[in-house]
């Protein structure tokens, strides 16, 4: 259970933590768009430095960010293999025979993969910074504020925010529940680590079925508890916490937009 720390909120007192969640979400979206522009290595270097500065300001250890990369390793290797097998453009790097099969690696395959990997890494970095410096409740509050204008086209802003906060709230509970059921099944002789495929499947089933049944039961109880306290999704309510933009939020958004403009220039003008 201790290992699941990826993206977990860390309470610190830094200028990044103090930013308005709306500004952080907007800035993230703008930079995400910038990341997906074909701006070349210079552009990525620039974005990388910008995110690096934010990470330093937020007092997040780079070690933690590196740990966030780890689960991606498998996917990256997979991507590399697929690209090597499918991309047949650019200069030929290697050309050799394996058991009579002609096998060629092209330069573009490597470059394409590197591009995707760098983009993914930047994305992970930026989303990790967001979730590590923003309380989950502030995050959902920010999302709700940002979605409110879309109510005109019937986007259920409040309902979406409520669903997200409930989901976030129950992640630790469900992890705990999973551990408990796993332990109970281990006591009944289930081996989650070793065994034949058929045994593994039966082990997973013995975990998933109770987990679903408990979760559904919990959802039912939560719905009743909310109704008992008079919750109605379309009811008008006042807020205890109100969000207010400050000067630093303008700086952040300005910076994000500057990055986007620069990427556009790098990608399409130069």
């Amino acid at each position: 259970m201790d290992k699941i720390v990826f993206g977990k909120y860390i309470p610190l007192d830094t200028p990044i933590h103090a930013l308005d969640p709306r500004a952080k979400i907007l800035a993230m979206l703008v930079v995400l768009v910038a990341i997906f522009l074909p701006a070349g290595w210079l552009g990525y270097l620039f974005i990388g430095i910008a995110i690096g500065i934010v990470i330093i300001l937020a007092k997040i250890k780079f070690k933690v960010i590196l740990r966030a990369f780890k689960p991606m390793m498998f996917m990256m290797i997979f991507l590399l293999v697929i690209n090597i097998l499918s991309v047949k453009e650019g200069t030929v790097l290697v050309d050799f025979d394996i058991f009579g099969h002609d096998f060629t690696i092209y330069a573009d395959a490597i470059f394409d993969t590197l591009y995707i990997i760098v983009r993914l890494l930047l994305m992970i970095m930026i989303t990790t910074v967001l979730t590590m410096t923003t309380k989950p409740l502030d995050l959902t509050l920010g999302i709700e504020y940002l979605l409110t204008p879309f109510k005109v086209i019937h986007v259920p802003a409040h309902e979406i925010a409520m669903m997200i906060s409930i989901a976030l709230r129950f992640i630790p509970t469900i992890i705990e529940e999973t551990m408990r059921i796993m332990n109970a099944q281990k006591s009944r002789g289930v081996d989650f680590e070793e065994g034949k495929l058929s045994e593994k499947i039966s082990a997973i089933v013995s975990l998933i079925v109770p987990l679903f049944s408990v979760s559904l039961q919990r959802a039912d109880e939560l719905a009743n508890a909310m109704e008992a306290r008079g919750y109605a999704p379309d009811g008008k309510r006042t807020r205890y916490r109100r969000l207010k933009y400050a000067f630093r939020d303008i700086v952040l958004l300005g910076g994000a937009i500057a990055i986007l403009v620069m990427m556009i220039i790098l990608a399409f003008v130069i």
């Binding site: 529940e177 408990r180 059921i181 332990n183 109970a184 099944q185 009944r188 109770p210």
Partner: peptide, 26 residues
Amino acid sequence: GLVFQFSEYQLFEETILKDVAFGPKN
């Protein structure tokens, strides 16, 4: 044999008999 608190959450098979037989089979 360890019987957990609220051990009813470990049940998962289609029938009670199958569920009880799950342990000995393992």
